[in-house]
Amino acid sequence: MAKIRREKKDSNGKYRKERLDRGIKARSDTIFALTSYREALYLVVPRAVTIIGLLILPLVLDIWWTKVMIMACVIAILALSWDFIASAGMLSLGQALFFGAGGYLAGVLNYYWGLSPLYTIPIATIAGATVCTLLFLPVLRLRGIYFAMVTFAMPLILVRIIEATRIWGGIEGLSALTPLPNLWVSAYLVIAAVFACLFGFRRLMDSDYGLVLRGMMDNDQAVMAGGINIYWYKAQTLFIGSAAGAFIGAFMTHYYRIVGTSAFSIDYSILPVACTVVGGPGNFAGAMFGAFILVPLCEYLRAIGSWRIVLYSFLMVIFVVAVPEGIFNYLERKYHQFEHWVKTG
C-alpha cells in the first residue's frame, strides 16, 4: 500500500516520499514469503528479543524490580485472558472474578487441607475456570453488554458476601499459606505462563478454531447459519480465558502467601483492560506490551498513591477514543513499512 507523505525538490527534480509495506506477506497476514535470511531475521528478531529479553530479566534485575516484573507478568496474563475473551465478542469487566476464584480456591485448598502448591495451583486453575464458566453460562445467550454488566457486578458482590459472612477468613483473608520455593521459581513460572498464553492464544486465533471466534465477533447469526453452536464455542473460550485468570490468581495466592478480598478488587479488573487498550487490542502482543509499560509505570509512581488509578483510567479512555489501535499496533505497522524517495518530475 503506497502512501504519499511529503515532497521535496532539488536540482535533479521533484521527489516525493512514499511509504510501502514490505513485500513479505503472501495470501494472508499469517503466511509469509521469505526470499532471504535478512527477511527471515526481520521476522524473527522481534520475537527473539521478547523471549530472550524476558528470560534474562530476572537475572539482571534487583529483587524489587524482579517483583515488579512478576507483577507485570501477572497483569499481562490477565490482559491476555481479557483480549482472548474479547476476541470472541465477550466483553469482560470482571477479570478480578477469575483471579479471585483461582486465588481463593488455592488458598482454601492449602489452608484447610494443607495441599502443596504443586496440587493447589492446577486444581484451582481447572476448578476456578469451571466455576466461572458455569456462572456465566446463562449470560452467553445475551448481547455483549449484558456480559459486561454481569462480569462487573459479580466480583464486587462476592467481596461484600465474603466480608459480611466472614467465610474464608473474612476481611483478613487466609494467611500463612505455603510459599513458593523462591523468587526464581516464581519469576520463571510466570514468565513461562506469559509465553504459554501469548503464543498459545496467538496460535489458536490463527487456526480454524480461532476463525470461528473471529466470525462470532463479526456476525454471530452467520456463524449459526454455518451450523456452528456459538454458545458451545463461547463457553470454551470463556473456560480457556478464565483458566488463565484463575491460574494467575492461584499463583499470586502462594506468591503473597495470603489471599483476601483484595483478590476481587477492582484493580484486577481495570488494569488488564487498560493495558490491552493502551497496548492495542486484538493481537495479544499488544496486551502484553501494554502490561509491560503500565505496570512498571504504576510501580514507579507508587508515591502518588491513588492518583495512579486516576492516571490509568483516564489514559485508557484517551486511548480508546483517540488511539483505538493502541501503541503496539501502531509500532507494528511502522515496522512493516519502509520509506523511500521516488522521483516524480
Binding site: S28, D208, Y209, L211, V212, R214, G215, D218, N219, Q221, A222, V223, A225, G226, G227, I228
Partner: peptide, 21 residues
C-alpha cells in the same frame, strides 16, 4: 451477512468446521 474482517475464503471455513461437514 459476511464475516467482514476475514478473507473471502476464510468465510467458507466456518461452516466447514460444523459437525455436519
Amino acid at each position: 451477512k459476511a464475516f467482514h474482517h476475514l478473507p473471502a475464503f476464510k468465510n467458507i471455513i466456518i461452516p466447514l468446521r460444523s459437525p455436519r461437514v
